[in-house]
Design a protein around this nucleic acid. Sequence first.
DNA 1: GACATCTTTAAACGCGTGTTTGATACTGCT
DNA 2: AGCAGTATCAAACACGCGTTTAAAGATGTC
Lengths: 201, 201
Amino acid sequence: MDDTRQRLLQAATEVFGEKGYDAATIRDICGRANANVALVNYHFGDKMELYTEVLVNAFRPPEGAPPPPPSATPEESIRKIIRAMLDKALDQSDQASLRYRLMLHEYAHPSAATPRVIDLTLRPVYDLLRKQIGTIAGVDPDSDQARLHVHSILGQVIHYTRSSTVVAALWPDLKMTPEQREMIAEHIAGITLSHLYAIAR
Amino acid sequence: MDDTRQRLLQAATEVFGEKGYDAATIRDICGRANANVALVNYHFGDKMELYTEVLVNAFRPPEGAPPPPPSATPEESIRKIIRAMLDKALDQSDQASLRYRLMLHEYAHPSAATPRVIDLTLRPVYDLLRKQIGTIAGVDPDSDQARLHVHSILGQVIHYTRSSTVVAALWPDLKMTPEQREMIAEHIAGITLSHLYAIAR
DNA sequence: GACATCTTTAAACGCGTGTTTGATACTGCT
DNA sequence: AGCAGTATCAAACACGCGTTTAAAGATGTC
Protein backbone atom coordinates (compact mmCIF):
# COMPACT_ATOMS: atom_id res chain seq x y z
CA MET A 1 0.00 0.00 0.00
CA ASP A 2 1.09 3.57 -0.54
CA ASP A 3 -0.12 4.16 3.00
CA THR A 4 3.14 2.64 4.25
CA ARG A 5 5.04 5.47 2.64
CA GLN A 6 2.88 7.93 4.52
CA ARG A 7 3.35 6.19 7.85
CA LEU A 8 7.11 6.19 7.31
CA LEU A 9 7.05 9.87 6.50
CA GLN A 10 5.11 10.70 9.65
CA ALA A 11 7.30 8.52 11.88
CA ALA A 12 10.42 9.99 10.30
CA THR A 13 9.14 13.52 10.91
CA GLU A 14 8.71 12.72 14.58
CA VAL A 15 12.04 10.99 15.07
CA PHE A 16 14.05 13.53 13.07
CA GLY A 17 12.27 16.33 14.91
CA GLU A 18 13.03 14.80 18.30
CA LYS A 19 16.60 13.66 17.77
CA GLY A 20 17.98 15.31 14.66
CA TYR A 21 19.35 13.61 11.59
CA ASP A 22 22.41 11.87 13.03
CA ALA A 23 20.87 10.55 16.23
CA ALA A 24 17.76 9.26 14.47
CA THR A 25 17.97 5.63 13.38
CA ILE A 26 16.14 3.94 10.55
CA ARG A 27 15.25 1.08 12.85
CA ASP A 28 13.57 3.49 15.25
CA ILE A 29 11.62 5.12 12.45
CA CYS A 30 10.50 1.81 11.00
CA GLY A 31 9.57 0.56 14.45
CA ARG A 32 7.18 3.46 14.98
CA ALA A 33 5.73 3.00 11.51
CA ASN A 34 5.34 -0.77 11.96
CA ALA A 35 7.39 -1.30 8.85
CA ASN A 36 10.36 -3.39 7.85
CA VAL A 37 13.79 -1.76 7.96
CA ALA A 38 14.26 -2.29 4.23
CA LEU A 39 11.21 -0.22 3.35
CA VAL A 40 12.89 3.12 3.90
CA ASN A 41 15.40 2.27 1.21
CA TYR A 42 12.71 0.82 -1.02
CA HIS A 43 10.42 3.84 -0.82
CA PHE A 44 12.92 6.66 -0.47
CA GLY A 45 16.30 5.39 -1.59
CA ASP A 46 18.34 6.14 1.50
CA LYS A 47 18.24 7.94 4.83
CA MET A 48 19.22 11.33 3.45
CA GLU A 49 16.54 11.28 0.77
CA LEU A 50 13.95 10.37 3.38
CA TYR A 51 15.17 13.31 5.44
CA THR A 52 14.89 15.80 2.60
CA GLU A 53 11.44 14.40 1.84
CA VAL A 54 10.51 15.07 5.47
CA LEU A 55 11.81 18.63 5.20
CA VAL A 56 10.04 19.31 1.92
CA ASN A 57 6.83 17.93 3.37
CA ALA A 58 7.08 19.72 6.71
CA PHE A 59 7.80 23.11 5.24
CA ARG A 60 5.39 22.96 2.36
CA PRO A 61 2.89 25.80 2.82
CA PRO A 62 -0.60 24.52 3.65
CA GLU A 63 -3.10 24.12 0.82
CA GLY A 64 -5.63 26.81 1.61
CA ALA A 65 -3.71 30.02 1.21
CA PRO A 66 -3.67 31.58 4.69
CA PRO A 67 -5.31 35.00 4.70
CA PRO A 68 -2.74 37.75 5.20
CA PRO A 69 -3.05 38.94 8.78
CA PRO A 70 -5.26 41.98 9.21
CA SER A 71 -2.81 44.82 9.01
CA ALA A 72 -2.46 46.05 12.56
CA THR A 73 -0.04 48.73 13.66
CA PRO A 74 3.63 47.81 13.26
CA GLU A 75 3.94 47.62 17.06
CA GLU A 76 1.12 45.12 17.42
CA SER A 77 2.42 43.17 14.46
CA ILE A 78 5.82 42.75 16.11
CA ARG A 79 4.24 41.72 19.39
CA LYS A 80 2.09 39.13 17.65
CA ILE A 81 4.98 37.64 15.69
CA ILE A 82 7.06 37.19 18.82
CA ARG A 83 4.23 35.66 20.76
CA ALA A 84 3.38 33.32 17.89
CA MET A 85 6.95 32.05 17.59
CA LEU A 86 7.12 31.34 21.31
CA ASP A 87 3.82 29.49 21.26
CA LYS A 88 4.59 27.48 18.18
CA ALA A 89 7.89 26.35 19.60
CA LEU A 90 6.67 25.48 23.06
CA ASP A 91 3.42 23.69 22.25
CA GLN A 92 4.67 20.17 22.69
CA SER A 93 3.78 17.19 20.52
CA ASP A 94 2.05 19.31 17.97
CA GLN A 95 2.74 19.16 14.26
CA ALA A 96 3.76 22.81 14.24
CA SER A 97 6.30 22.30 16.99
CA LEU A 98 7.76 19.35 15.08
CA ARG A 99 8.37 21.74 12.22
CA TYR A 100 10.04 24.13 14.61
CA ARG A 101 12.26 21.45 16.07
CA LEU A 102 13.27 20.23 12.63
CA MET A 103 14.27 23.79 11.92
CA LEU A 104 16.36 24.07 15.08
CA HIS A 105 18.17 20.83 14.30
CA GLU A 106 18.99 22.18 10.87
CA TYR A 107 20.54 25.26 12.43
CA ALA A 108 22.51 23.27 14.96
CA HIS A 109 23.89 20.84 12.37
CA PRO A 110 23.73 22.62 9.05
CA SER A 111 23.30 20.46 5.98
CA ALA A 112 22.97 21.09 2.29
CA ALA A 113 19.27 21.71 2.85
CA THR A 114 19.77 24.39 5.51
CA PRO A 115 19.72 27.45 3.22
CA ARG A 116 16.42 26.31 1.76
CA VAL A 117 14.96 25.66 5.22
CA ILE A 118 15.98 29.13 6.29
CA ASP A 119 14.36 30.61 3.21
CA LEU A 120 11.10 28.86 4.02
CA THR A 121 11.02 29.52 7.76
CA LEU A 122 13.03 32.35 9.18
CA ARG A 123 13.47 34.61 6.19
CA PRO A 124 9.80 35.60 5.80
CA VAL A 125 9.70 36.55 9.47
CA TYR A 126 13.05 38.26 9.15
CA ASP A 127 11.95 40.36 6.21
CA LEU A 128 8.62 41.22 7.75
CA LEU A 129 10.19 42.31 11.02
CA ARG A 130 12.75 44.41 9.19
CA LYS A 131 10.00 46.18 7.34
CA GLN A 132 7.98 46.93 10.46
CA ILE A 133 11.05 48.08 12.34
CA GLY A 134 12.09 50.28 9.46
CA THR A 135 8.67 51.89 9.51
CA ILE A 136 8.72 52.61 13.22
CA ALA A 137 12.26 53.94 13.41
CA GLY A 138 12.20 55.63 10.03
CA VAL A 139 15.23 53.73 8.75
CA ASP A 140 15.97 51.56 5.74
CA PRO A 141 14.88 47.90 6.29
CA ASP A 142 18.25 46.93 4.81
CA SER A 143 20.24 49.03 7.24
CA ASP A 144 22.45 47.59 9.94
CA GLN A 145 20.15 49.21 12.49
CA ALA A 146 17.11 47.28 11.32
CA ARG A 147 19.02 44.02 11.01
CA LEU A 148 20.50 44.32 14.47
CA HIS A 149 17.07 44.72 15.96
CA VAL A 150 15.66 41.71 14.15
CA HIS A 151 18.56 39.51 15.17
CA SER A 152 18.07 40.65 18.74
CA ILE A 153 14.49 39.46 18.61
CA LEU A 154 15.29 36.17 16.90
CA GLY A 155 18.18 35.50 19.25
CA GLN A 156 16.03 35.94 22.30
CA VAL A 157 13.13 33.84 21.02
CA ILE A 158 15.45 31.03 19.94
CA HIS A 159 17.21 31.23 23.29
CA TYR A 160 14.03 30.59 25.26
CA THR A 161 12.91 27.79 22.96
CA ARG A 162 16.15 26.00 22.24
CA SER A 163 18.18 26.43 25.40
CA SER A 164 15.50 25.32 27.79
CA THR A 165 18.09 23.49 29.87
CA VAL A 166 20.10 26.65 30.42
CA VAL A 167 17.06 28.77 31.13
CA ALA A 168 15.66 26.21 33.55
CA ALA A 169 18.96 25.98 35.42
CA LEU A 170 19.36 29.74 35.80
CA TRP A 171 15.71 30.55 36.41
CA PRO A 172 13.98 27.59 38.03
CA ASP A 173 10.79 29.51 38.71
CA LEU A 174 10.14 30.02 35.04
CA LYS A 175 7.62 27.37 34.07
CA MET A 176 6.67 28.76 30.68
CA THR A 177 3.01 29.07 31.57
CA PRO A 178 0.91 31.08 29.12
CA GLU A 179 1.16 34.08 31.45
CA GLN A 180 4.94 33.81 31.60
CA ARG A 181 5.15 33.41 27.86
CA GLU A 182 3.18 36.61 27.54
CA MET A 183 5.55 38.30 29.94
CA ILE A 184 8.58 37.18 27.93
CA ALA A 185 7.05 38.18 24.61
CA GLU A 186 6.11 41.55 26.04
CA HIS A 187 9.62 42.08 27.36
CA ILE A 188 11.31 41.17 24.09
CA ALA A 189 8.98 43.45 22.17
CA GLY A 190 9.29 46.14 24.83
CA ILE A 191 13.05 46.57 24.84
CA THR A 192 13.16 46.67 21.06
CA LEU A 193 10.28 49.11 20.74
CA SER A 194 11.51 51.48 23.41
CA HIS A 195 14.86 51.63 21.68
CA LEU A 196 13.20 52.19 18.33
CA TYR A 197 11.23 55.11 19.72
CA ALA A 198 14.45 56.55 21.10
CA ILE A 199 15.95 56.39 17.61
CA ALA A 200 12.90 57.89 15.94
CA ARG A 201 13.13 60.93 18.15
CA MET B 1 55.36 8.77 30.31
CA ASP B 2 52.64 10.68 32.07
CA ASP B 3 52.99 13.20 29.27
CA THR B 4 50.87 10.95 27.09
CA ARG B 5 47.95 11.50 29.43
CA GLN B 6 48.38 15.22 28.98
CA ARG B 7 48.53 14.99 25.20
CA LEU B 8 45.37 12.89 25.19
CA LEU B 9 43.63 15.42 27.40
CA GLN B 10 44.57 18.30 25.12
CA ALA B 11 43.59 16.45 21.95
CA ALA B 12 40.31 15.40 23.55
CA THR B 13 39.58 18.98 24.56
CA GLU B 14 40.00 20.05 20.96
CA VAL B 15 37.96 17.27 19.41
CA PHE B 16 35.14 17.43 21.95
CA GLY B 17 35.10 21.19 21.59
CA GLU B 18 34.90 21.02 17.83
CA LYS B 19 32.44 18.17 17.41
CA GLY B 20 30.73 17.50 20.70
CA TYR B 21 30.68 14.26 22.66
CA ASP B 22 28.80 12.01 20.26
CA ALA B 23 30.48 13.03 17.03
CA ALA B 24 33.96 12.87 18.52
CA THR B 25 35.73 9.55 18.05
CA ILE B 26 38.43 8.00 20.18
CA ARG B 27 40.44 7.19 17.06
CA ASP B 28 40.43 10.85 16.07
CA ILE B 29 41.54 11.93 19.53
CA CYS B 30 44.32 9.36 19.68
CA GLY B 31 45.42 10.26 16.16
CA ARG B 32 45.96 13.88 17.15
CA ALA B 33 47.77 12.85 20.31
CA ASN B 34 49.95 10.34 18.45
CA ALA B 35 48.76 7.67 20.79
CA ASN B 36 47.36 4.18 20.46
CA VAL B 37 43.59 3.74 20.57
CA ALA B 38 43.85 1.59 23.68
CA LEU B 39 45.47 4.34 25.70
CA VAL B 40 42.30 6.27 26.31
CA ASN B 41 40.84 3.29 28.08
CA TYR B 42 44.10 2.63 29.88
CA HIS B 43 44.52 6.15 31.22
CA PHE B 44 40.92 7.20 31.70
CA GLY B 45 38.74 4.11 31.76
CA ASP B 46 36.30 4.94 29.00
CA LYS B 47 35.17 7.72 26.70
CA MET B 48 32.74 9.28 29.16
CA GLU B 49 35.33 9.49 31.95
CA LEU B 50 37.74 11.13 29.52
CA TYR B 51 35.02 13.63 28.66
CA THR B 52 34.28 14.54 32.27
CA GLU B 53 38.01 14.86 32.85
CA VAL B 54 38.13 17.29 29.93
CA LEU B 55 35.27 19.29 31.41
CA VAL B 56 36.76 19.38 34.89
CA ASN B 57 40.08 20.48 33.44
CA ALA B 58 38.65 23.05 31.07
CA PHE B 59 36.48 24.75 33.66
CA ARG B 60 38.91 24.67 36.53
CA PRO B 61 39.63 28.27 37.50
CA PRO B 62 43.21 29.28 36.68
CA GLU B 63 45.81 29.05 39.44
CA GLY B 64 46.64 32.68 40.09
CA ALA B 65 43.42 34.15 41.38
CA PRO B 66 42.36 36.68 38.73
CA PRO B 67 42.11 40.17 40.19
CA PRO B 68 38.51 41.34 40.37
CA PRO B 69 37.94 43.79 37.51
CA PRO B 70 38.41 47.43 38.45
CA SER B 71 34.91 48.47 39.39
CA ALA B 72 33.72 50.62 36.54
CA THR B 73 30.25 52.02 36.28
CA PRO B 74 27.51 49.38 35.91
CA GLU B 75 26.95 50.52 32.33
CA GLU B 76 30.58 50.04 31.34
CA SER B 77 30.67 46.74 33.17
CA ILE B 78 27.74 45.42 31.15
CA ARG B 79 29.28 46.60 27.91
CA LYS B 80 32.58 44.92 28.74
CA ILE B 81 30.96 41.62 29.67
CA ILE B 82 29.05 41.47 26.41
CA ARG B 83 32.07 42.36 24.34
CA ALA B 84 34.22 39.83 26.19
CA MET B 85 31.73 37.01 25.60
CA LEU B 86 31.56 37.76 21.90
CA ASP B 87 35.34 37.88 21.58
CA LYS B 88 35.95 34.75 23.59
CA ALA B 89 33.46 32.82 21.50
CA LEU B 90 34.63 34.02 18.13
CA ASP B 91 38.40 33.91 18.54
CA GLN B 92 39.05 30.69 16.71
CA SER B 93 41.50 28.00 17.78
CA ASP B 94 42.14 29.61 21.11
CA GLN B 95 41.98 27.79 24.40
CA ALA B 96 39.30 30.11 25.70
CA SER B 97 37.10 29.53 22.69
CA LEU B 98 37.49 25.78 23.14
CA ARG B 99 36.05 26.22 26.61
CA TYR B 100 33.20 28.21 25.15
CA ARG B 101 32.45 25.61 22.51
CA LEU B 102 32.52 22.81 25.06
CA MET B 103 29.96 24.83 26.99
CA LEU B 104 27.71 25.26 23.95
CA HIS B 105 27.82 21.55 23.19
CA GLU B 106 26.78 20.84 26.76
CA TYR B 107 23.77 23.12 26.34
CA ALA B 108 22.79 21.60 23.02
CA HIS B 109 23.06 18.02 24.30
CA PRO B 110 22.61 18.20 28.06
CA SER B 111 24.35 15.52 30.08
CA ALA B 112 24.68 14.73 33.74
CA ALA B 113 27.51 17.24 33.90
CA THR B 114 25.51 20.13 32.44
CA PRO B 115 24.28 21.67 35.71
CA ARG B 116 27.83 21.83 36.98
CA VAL B 117 29.08 23.34 33.74
CA ILE B 118 26.40 26.00 33.97
CA ASP B 119 27.39 26.78 37.54
CA LEU B 120 31.00 27.28 36.49
CA THR B 121 30.39 29.27 33.34
CA LEU B 122 27.14 31.07 32.85
CA ARG B 123 25.95 31.52 36.42
CA PRO B 124 28.70 33.90 37.53
CA VAL B 125 28.00 36.11 34.53
CA TYR B 126 24.28 35.73 35.10
CA ASP B 127 24.51 36.82 38.73
CA LEU B 128 26.87 39.68 37.99
CA LEU B 129 24.66 41.03 35.22
CA ARG B 130 21.59 40.77 37.44
CA LYS B 131 23.34 42.80 40.09
CA GLN B 132 24.43 45.53 37.70
CA ILE B 133 21.01 45.70 36.11
CA GLY B 134 19.35 45.83 39.48
CA THR B 135 21.56 48.76 40.40
CA ILE B 136 20.81 50.71 37.25
CA ALA B 137 17.06 50.16 37.24
CA GLY B 138 16.65 50.23 40.99
CA VAL B 139 15.04 46.79 41.13
CA ASP B 140 15.73 43.57 42.98
CA PRO B 141 18.35 41.42 41.20
CA ASP B 142 16.03 38.47 41.85
CA SER B 143 13.06 40.10 40.21
CA ASP B 144 11.54 38.96 36.96
CA GLN B 145 12.53 42.30 35.46
CA ALA B 146 16.22 41.78 36.12
CA ARG B 147 16.14 38.16 34.98
CA LEU B 148 14.36 39.01 31.76
CA HIS B 149 17.02 41.54 30.88
CA VAL B 150 19.85 39.13 31.56
CA HIS B 151 18.27 36.39 29.48
CA SER B 152 17.81 38.88 26.70
CA ILE B 153 21.51 39.61 26.73
CA LEU B 154 22.57 35.98 26.96
CA GLY B 155 20.13 34.96 24.25
CA GLN B 156 21.49 37.50 21.84
CA VAL B 157 25.14 36.74 22.52
CA ILE B 158 24.59 33.00 22.19
CA HIS B 159 22.62 33.59 19.01
CA TYR B 160 25.49 35.37 17.29
CA THR B 161 28.06 32.84 18.45
CA ARG B 162 26.18 29.58 18.08
CA SER B 163 23.88 30.16 15.14
CA SER B 164 26.50 31.49 12.78
CA THR B 165 24.89 29.59 9.90
CA VAL B 166 21.57 31.33 10.42
CA VAL B 167 23.12 34.73 10.88
CA ALA B 168 25.30 34.31 7.82
CA ALA B 169 22.35 33.24 5.68
CA LEU B 170 20.16 36.16 6.74
CA TRP B 171 22.88 38.76 6.85
CA PRO B 172 25.65 37.88 4.38
CA ASP B 173 27.44 41.19 4.82
CA LEU B 174 28.15 40.50 8.46
CA LYS B 175 31.72 39.22 8.61
CA MET B 176 32.23 39.52 12.34
CA THR B 177 35.17 41.85 11.99
CA PRO B 178 36.30 43.52 15.24
CA GLU B 179 34.40 46.64 14.21
CA GLN B 180 31.22 44.68 13.59
CA ARG B 181 31.62 42.83 16.86
CA GLU B 182 31.83 46.18 18.56
CA MET B 183 28.69 47.30 16.76
CA ILE B 184 26.82 44.19 17.87
CA ALA B 185 28.00 44.45 21.45
CA GLU B 186 27.06 48.11 21.53
CA HIS B 187 23.63 47.34 20.16
CA ILE B 188 22.91 44.58 22.66
CA ALA B 189 24.04 46.77 25.52
CA GLY B 190 22.20 49.74 24.07
CA ILE B 191 18.73 48.29 23.85
CA THR B 192 18.98 46.89 27.35
CA LEU B 193 20.36 50.08 28.85
CA SER B 194 17.90 52.39 27.16
CA HIS B 195 15.06 50.26 28.50
CA LEU B 196 16.59 50.23 31.96
CA TYR B 197 16.79 54.00 31.99
CA ALA B 198 13.16 54.15 30.92
CA ILE B 199 12.26 51.98 33.93
CA ALA B 200 14.39 54.01 36.33
CA ARG B 201 12.57 57.17 35.37
C1' DG C 1 -6.20 -18.62 -13.86
C1' DA C 2 -1.65 -17.09 -15.31
C1' DC C 3 1.59 -13.90 -15.68
C1' DA C 4 4.01 -9.42 -14.60
C1' DT C 5 4.68 -5.95 -11.40
C1' DC C 6 4.77 -3.82 -7.13
C1' DT C 7 5.46 -4.57 -1.74
C1' DT C 8 7.05 -6.69 2.09
C1' DT C 9 9.96 -9.73 4.61
C1' DA C 10 13.95 -11.98 7.32
C1' DA C 11 18.51 -12.31 7.00
C1' DA C 12 22.86 -10.87 6.00
C1' DC C 13 26.65 -7.56 4.54
C1' DG C 14 30.14 -3.97 5.22
C1' DC C 15 31.63 -0.49 8.00
C1' DG C 16 32.77 2.40 12.01
C1' DT C 17 32.38 2.62 16.74
C1' DG C 18 34.00 1.90 21.87
C1' DT C 19 36.33 -1.50 24.19
C1' DT C 20 39.30 -5.58 25.43
C1' DT C 21 43.11 -8.64 24.94
C1' DG C 22 47.63 -10.56 25.20
C1' DA C 23 52.10 -9.66 23.90
C1' DT C 24 55.94 -6.41 23.87
C1' DA C 25 58.76 -2.43 25.36
C1' DC C 26 60.11 0.55 28.89
C1' DT C 27 61.34 2.06 33.79
C1' DG C 28 63.13 2.01 38.28
C1' DC C 29 64.73 -0.52 42.12
C1' DT C 30 67.78 -4.06 44.63
C1' DA D 1 71.64 -8.46 35.79
C1' DG D 2 67.24 -9.51 37.15
C1' DC D 3 62.74 -8.49 38.13
C1' DA D 4 58.16 -6.11 39.21
C1' DG D 5 55.32 -2.73 37.70
C1' DT D 6 53.99 0.49 34.27
C1' DA D 7 53.13 1.94 29.51
C1' DT D 8 52.43 1.02 24.75
C1' DC D 9 51.22 -1.62 20.84
C1' DA D 10 48.74 -4.29 16.96
C1' DA D 11 44.98 -6.99 16.63
C1' DA D 12 40.66 -8.53 17.57
C1' DC D 13 35.96 -8.31 19.65
C1' DA D 14 31.06 -7.05 20.18
C1' DC D 15 27.72 -4.05 18.81
C1' DG D 16 24.79 -0.77 16.18
C1' DC D 17 24.42 1.45 12.11
C1' DG D 18 22.76 2.11 6.97
C1' DT D 19 22.19 -0.71 3.29
C1' DT D 20 21.58 -4.84 0.23
C1' DT D 21 19.85 -9.28 -1.10
C1' DA D 22 16.94 -12.89 -2.54
C1' DA D 23 12.79 -14.92 -1.66
C1' DA D 24 7.86 -14.64 -0.52
C1' DG D 25 3.46 -12.22 -0.66
C1' DA D 26 0.13 -9.10 -2.54
C1' DT D 27 -2.08 -6.85 -6.50
C1' DG D 28 -3.63 -5.86 -10.87
C1' DT D 29 -4.21 -7.16 -16.02
C1' DC D 30 -5.28 -9.79 -19.88
